[in-house]
Computed example of a mutant assay.
Amino acid sequence: MPILSHNPEGLFPPYRNYSHATEIRGDARLLIISGLNGYLADGRTMPDSFEEQGEIIWQHIGTILRAAGMDYSDLVSLRTYLADPSYDEANVRLRIKYLGDHRPSSTVVCCRLLDPKWKLEVEAMAAK
Score class of each variant (00 low, 15 high):
Val76Pro: 01
Leu82Met: 12
Ala90Ser: 10
Leu65Phe: 02
Pro14Glu: 04
Asp74Glu: 13
Leu75Lys: 01
Leu4Tyr: 12
Asp27Ala: 07
Asn91Pro: 11
Leu65Glu: 00
Arg29Lys: 13
Lys117Ala: 11
Met70Ala: 14
Tyr87Ile: 06
Leu4Val: 15
Trp58His: 02
Tyr81Ile: 03
Val92Arg: 04
Pro2Leu: 13
Asp42Lys: 03
Ala41Phe: 02
Gly62Cys: 03
Gly35Asn: 08
Ala28Asn: 12
Ala28Ser: 14
Asp27Pro: 04
His60Lys: 15
Ile56Ala: 06
Asp42Ile: 06
Arg16Gln: 11
Glu52Ala: 15
Ile33Met: 04
Pro14Asp: 05
Ala90Asn: 05
Met46Cys: 14
Arg16Cys: 08
Arg93Gly: 03
Leu65Tyr: 00
Asp101Cys: 06
Ala67Trp: 00
Leu94Gln: 06
Gln53His: 12
Asn7Gln: 09
Gly100Ile: 09
Gly100Met: 07
Leu82Trp: 02
Leu113Tyr: 03
Asp42Pro: 07
His60Glu: 08
Glu52Phe: 01
Asp48Ile: 06
Tyr87Ala: 10
Ser73Cys: 15
Asp27Gln: 08
Leu120Gln: 02
Leu78Phe: 04
Ser86Cys: 10
Cys111Met: 13
Thr107Pro: 04
Ala124Ser: 13
Asp115Gln: 10
Thr63Lys: 04
His6Gly: 09
Thr22Arg: 01
Gln53Val: 13
Arg16Glu: 12
Ala124His: 00
Thr22Gln: 01
Arg16Lys: 11
Lys117Tyr: 03
Leu94Trp: 01
Pro13Asn: 13
Thr63Met: 02
Gln53Ile: 12
Arg16Met: 09
Asp42Tyr: 02
Gly54Ser: 14
Phe50Pro: 00
Leu114Ser: 14
Asp101Lys: 11
Val108Leu: 10
Glu9Val: 11
Gly35Ile: 01
Ser77Phe: 10
Asp27Thr: 09
Asp88Gly: 07
Leu78Asp: 01
Arg103Lys: 15
Tyr72Pro: 00
Ser5Met: 04
Ala21His: 03
Trp118Phe: 11
Asp115Thr: 08
His6Pro: 02
Tyr18Asn: 01
Asn17Tyr: 09
Ser49Val: 07
Leu30Val: 15
Ala67Gln: 08
Ala127Phe: 02
Asp74Met: 09
Pro2His: 11
Leu11Tyr: 13
Leu78Tyr: 01
Ile24Asp: 00
Ser34Lys: 13
Ile96Phe: 05
Arg29Phe: 11
Pro85Arg: 14
Phe12Val: 14
Asn17Gln: 15
Ser73Trp: 08
Ala127Gly: 07
Cys111Ser: 12
Tyr87Arg: 07
Arg25Thr: 15
Ile96Gly: 06
Ala28Asp: 07
Glu52Gln: 14
Ile3Trp: 00
Tyr18Cys: 03
Leu113Ala: 05
His6Lys: 09
Tyr81Asp: 02
Arg93Ile: 03
Lys119Asn: 10
Leu120Val: 10
Val76Asn: 00
Cys110Pro: 03
Trp58Lys: 00
Arg66Thr: 09
Gly62Gln: 01
Glu89Cys: 04
Thr22Cys: 03
Met46Ile: 15
Glu9His: 08
Tyr87Met: 10
Lys119Gln: 13
Leu40Cys: 12
Gly100Ser: 12
Tyr18Asp: 00
Pro2Phe: 09
Ile33Lys: 01
Ser86Val: 12
Thr22Pro: 00
Pro104Leu: 00
Ser49Leu: 06
Glu23Arg: 11
Ser19Ile: 10
Pro47Cys: 11
Val108Pro: 01
Leu30Met: 15
